[in-house]
Design a binder for these strands. Structure first.
Length: 585
RNA sequence: GGUGGCGUAGUUCAGUUGGUUAGAAUAUCGGCCUGUCACGCCGAGGGUCGCGAGUUCGAGUCUCGUCGUCACCGCCA
């Protein structure tokens, strides 16, 4: 038997008993005649002691010990004479009678403790050592707990957890597919699912009624802090439901997770129209922890000979509370911030509403105090506030204002990670025009149903058609999205036509789905949550890497096992593949 | 595909205007130490300044290229 207890469970009540623990040597403190060892496992740390009363051979054994050795230690539990209130086992220690090295360790490349000295690179290369640190382990424990809570809720609501295949058919819409060559079918490829979308719809045709799956999905696109090439979704679909049923069910799930995992009760989630989200927040994933709404001030600023505004399609502003004392230097820095290529504003106009009630702006030459006062009223600004104005074409300017709003929210400390403000964004556009491809693309996916009242626009102004599509957004993070699906093969054909598919193409790509719809498809709708994002949000982290056991780096590489990697000529031949790599410069 | 930051001891970093032998902390090793828990004290070892080219009497420092890494834009139904 390797252990009678874990390193996290012994308490004062255990004093006097003889126990055996196994774990890793966290640290050795040699005080000369006595030595302390911190023994660690995933449950905690227990202090071991060897003093002058101990066996002489024991002291000798201690000389051989080093950090991260795996040892088995037997001894008697006793009360500490000086206690440590910072750890749960701090009242007791083990007087060693026997120690066995189960496995020695080389000196680790970074120190394995909460305040590690290791940077990201080296911790990723030795991720298995990084995972020994409680800070990292706790993120994965949180993930496991959340998955458990989610299953409990969905099971209680009669959802059937169903696995769908990972080797599926490649589809042209959406993200790039990861593909897998088939040895038995030379020249042909499977794709890894970007989401089990069509499969779960087929489960609805099969009458499964309520399906869910916590499932890996794959997209061969560039990475970000919140995007990995393989990630996990809570994928769901329901039959005989309308949009409202889906929103209520998954609002219920989200609230249940908050309650069970964080002990937080959250009010009903507000609903916001997509068009309002864009107009007021400059984003389809608004962070509603703070206001600072975007205001269209085009109508009141034009006609004063300020040509930049007069020639702009759109002039918008936000009001930063209490920032009128910003220095010239701070304003210049902010101006440079919005002019960076990532934001792309041409410039920025500011208006200081000084605490004494006067105004000072960068456009005093064109606007009187009364003019500026009108701006302030429009923005609901008070003395002491700072108004920031951007202008240009509408789409870009609103987007830039949205970014500026988030930046100011950050600078003003309005993005409290302990506050959670979920909302539903609804009525997304059905289609998106792509200038390069010169055709419409489905904004969500091609199976999303248009709103009934917009049916007629499908023929006349497809770009204006709204969809029965919705997103769950929490603190400016897109947590999930879904839609009411098309379940009528005629309407589905119409959609494919609108997206520029010929009948033959649609048949080749999605024929199995359209065929299934001929045999009694029930009305259905669904949603998928980004599980990694949800966990990182709960953990207060900005990167989903921290809640994934073995994540990939910026370039999609796993630096621990150095993949992806070349495969042998034999493997290539078996797969009937010939590489024709473009020469690297 | 693009923009920006970073790359110096095992690790995290400092390194002034381009100038003598590249430093600190931590880790490691050795010595001392009976209540530590970030133990303390004394000492030692440890460097291809990512790589390559260039400018210069002289480059960790400047220039160009390249590789790695991070953040972002494009991309992500």
């Amino acid at each position: 038997m390797y252990r009678t207890h874990t390193c996290g469970e012994l308490r004062i009540d255990n004093v006097g008993t003889t126990v055996t623990l196994s774990g890793w040597v966290q640290r050795i403190r040699d005080l000369g005649a006595m030595t302390f060892i911190d023994l660690r496992d995933r449950y905690g740390i227990t202090q071991l002691v060897v003093d002058e009363n101990s066996d002489a051979t024991l002291s000798k054994q201690l000389d051989e010990l080093g950090r991260e050795f795996v040892i088995q230690a037997t001894g008697e539990v006793r009360e500490r004479s000086s206690k440590n209130k910072n750890i749960s086992t701090g009242d007791i220690e083990i007087t060693l009678s026997k120690i066995t090295v189960l496995n020695p360790s080389e000196i680790p490349p970074f120190t394995i403790q909460d305040d590690t000295d290791g940077g990201d690179d080296i911790r990723m290369k030795y991720r298995y050592l990084d995972l020994r640190r409680s800070a990292v382990r706790k993120n994965l424990e949180l993930r496991a707990k959340m998955a458990h809570v989610i299953r409990t809720y969905l099971n209680s609501k009669d959802f059937i957890e169903t696995e769908t295949p990972v080797l599926i058919k490649s589809t042209p819409e959406g993200a790039r597919d990861f593909v897998v060559p088939s040895r038995m079918n030379p020249g042909e490829f499977y794709a890894l699912p970007q989401s089990p979308q069509q499969l779960k719809q087929l489960l609805m045709v099969a009458g499964f009624d309520r399906y869910y799956q916590i499932v890996k999905c794959f997209r061969d696109e560039d990475l970000r802090a919140d995007r990995q090439p393989e990630f996990t979704q809570i994928d769901c679909e329901m039959s005989f439901v309308e949009q409202e049923d889906v929103l209520n069910t998954f609002e219920g799930l989200t609230r249940y997770i908050f309650k069970e995992v964080k002990g937080i009760e959250i009010d009903n989630f507000p609903r916001m129209l997509y068009s309002d989200a864009i107009e007021k927040y400059g984003s389809d994933k608004p962070d509603i922890r703070f206001e600072m709404l975007i205001n269209d001030i085009s109508s009141i600023v034009k006609g004063k000979d300020f040509t930049i505004f007069d020639s702009a399609e759109y002039i918008g502003a936000i009001c930063a509370k209490g920032c009128a004392d910003y220095s010239r230097k701070q304003l210049d820095e902010l101006t440079n911030w919005v002019k960076r290529p990532q934001i792309g504003a041409k410039g920025m106009v500011y208006v200081k509403y000084n605490t004494d009630g006067s105004f000072k702006s960068s456009v005093d030459k064109f606007y009187s105090e009364d003019d500026l006062k009108e701006w302030a009223e429009k923005l609901d600004a008070s003395a002491g506030d700072l108004i920031l104005v951007l202008s240009g074409d509408k789409a870009h300017t609103i987007n830039a204002l949205g970014e500026l709003r988030l930046e100011m929210g950050k600078r003003l400390g309005l993005k409290d990670k302990n506050i959670f403000k979920p909302l539903w964004v609804v009525d997304f556009p059905l289609l998106e025009w792509d200038e390069e491809a010169h055709r419409f693309f489905a904004m969500h996916h091609p199976f999303t149903s248009p709103k009934k009242e917009d049916f007629e626009l499908l023929e006349t102004e497809p770009g204006k058609v709204r969809a029965n599509a919705y997103d769950l957004v929490i603190n400016g993070v897109e947590i999930g999205g879904g839609s009411v699906r098309i379940f009528n093969s005629e309407l589905q054909s119409k959609m494919f036509k609108l997206l520029g598919f010929t009948k033959e193409q649609a048949e080749a790509q999605f024929g199995f789905l359209m065929n299934a719809f001929k045999y009694g498809a029930p009305p259905h709708a669904g949603i998928a949550f980004g599980f990694d994002r949800l966990v990182s949000l709960f953990a207060g982290l900005d990167s989903i890497r921290d809640v994934i056991a073995f994540p990939k780096n910026n370039a999609g590489r796993d630096v621990m096992n150095d993949s992806p990697s070349l495969i042998s000529q034999e493997q290539l031949e078996e797969l009937n593949l010939k590489l024709d790599l473009k020469e690297k410069k």
